[in-house]
Write a protein that binds this DNA or RNA. Structure first.
Length: 337
DNA sequence: TCTCACACCTTTGAAGTGG
DNA sequence: CCACTTCAAAGGTGTGAGA
């Protein structure tokens, strides 16, 4: 599948001068195939291990480029060891996976699929830091961890025209095989991957995860993995820093913020969770949105062209009311200043 | 470790209003 | 007819108690 080009992206979104090119064999270490066995290397206690030099927000393969859109939020969660809640009826991910795709053939059809792969074979426990606590559960059928994007399949120009969001994906610990639910084991470690599947003319893959899963074995499929999106599946939060980050960034949890005037009690606010908070949120005008948007983020493609991809989407989503338009305008002005 | 009811929140769409 | 506002229902949050 050619070479994987990994460009460094600093915390401020600027390119790192230390961009590196990885060969296929190198890439297998950092960008495992969804079908490979869990990593041979041992579990990483004390939170998820970032790539050397920090996780990048950009991946490219065979001319196709993928940018993890809300990378700054992911990175902040990643530093604490991201946790995702599992519930019987399914819980949405937060942050969720949102990508900007470039380099597709405009008139060719593609299916975009998200898979969630176990990283290791251990069960973990939280003891002020994440540590392995024994052998893990046998992993469920891989096809139950595949989530096709609701717009699949669509033309390349359609995928490239807007952000590809998997906000509808829900995580569960019940094996009911319900549509839209991805079945995971609690206290296990997972990593999402985006798969771009080119569709041959006249071919119809439908929306069946099992059928799409089989397609992932095709050599023409391109897989993009971002280490900063790794997470621990849990049924209740273990690390209070993660709880606080979720409350800070997820608008649906606004009622738990200290400044919301809520009478509800919240857990003591860990001081560490405040670090870097001002970079992404403004007092009185949070740039975090229910779908995880944090405003325009500079994206660097493989050709070095700067993009401001979230902008259009924000305006579209915010055009419901004049107030929301002002919100979008302020975002644009502040980011372009 | 997991489940559930709960209060609080945002989103969404229908209905109403005014130019 | 269109743009905007208001309102209520639906559904997404973390909490905390209990199993």
């Amino acid at each position: 599948a050619g070479e994987w080009l990994v460009s460094g992206l600093g915390a401020d979104g600027a390119t790192s001068p230390s961009a590196a090119t990885m060969t296929n064999s190198d890439a297998k270490l950092a960008l495992p195939s969804p079908f490979s066995s869990p990593a041979a290397s041992g579990p990483a206690p004390g939170g998820l291990q970032p790539e050397e030099g920090g996780p990048s927000a950009v991946r490219s393969c065979g001319g196709v480029g993928v940018t993890l859109e809300n990378s700054n939020v992911w990175k902040e969660f990643h530093r604490c060891g991201t946790e995702m809640i599992l519930t019987k009826q399914g819980r949405r991910m937060f942050p969720y996976c949102r990508y900007h795709v470039t380099g597709l053939e405009p008139t060719r059809r593609y299916a975009l699929v998200l898979s969630i792969t176990p990283i290791d074979t251990y069960r973990h426990r939280w003891n002020l830091e994440w540590e392995p606590s024994g052998p893990g559960e046998p992993h469920t059928q891989a096809s139950s961890r595949v989530f096709p994007h609701q717009d699949s399949s669509a033309l390349g120009k359609v995928w490239m025209a807007s952000l590809v969001s998997f906000y509808k994906l829900k995580l569960t610990n019940h094996c009911l095989d319900q549509e839209g639910l991805v079945m995971l084991h609690s206290m296990h470690r997972y990593r999402p991957s985006l798969h771009v599947i080119p569709i041959a003319e006249g071919e119809d893959l439908g929306f069946d995860p099992k059928l799409l899963y089989l397609q992932l074995f095709s050599p023409k499929v391109m897989t993009f993995t971002f280490p900063q999106t790794e997470f621990y599946a849990v049924t209740s939060y273990q690390n209070t820093m993660i709880t606080q980050l979720k409350i800070d960034y997820n608008p649906f949890a606004k009622g738990f913020r200290e400044d919301s005037g809520s009478r509800r009690l919240t857990k003591p606010r860990p001081e560490q969770s405040q670090a870097g908070k001002e970079d992404t949120r403004s007092p009185g005008l949070s740039s975090a949105r229910p779908d995880g948007r944090e405003g325009t983020e500079q994206i660097v493609t493989v050709s070095g062209v700067l993009l401001t991809s979230a902008t259009e989407s924000i305006i579209t989503q915010s055009s419901r009311t004049a107030g929301a338009l002002v919100h979008a305008s302020v975002l644009l002005a502040s980011k372009s200043a």
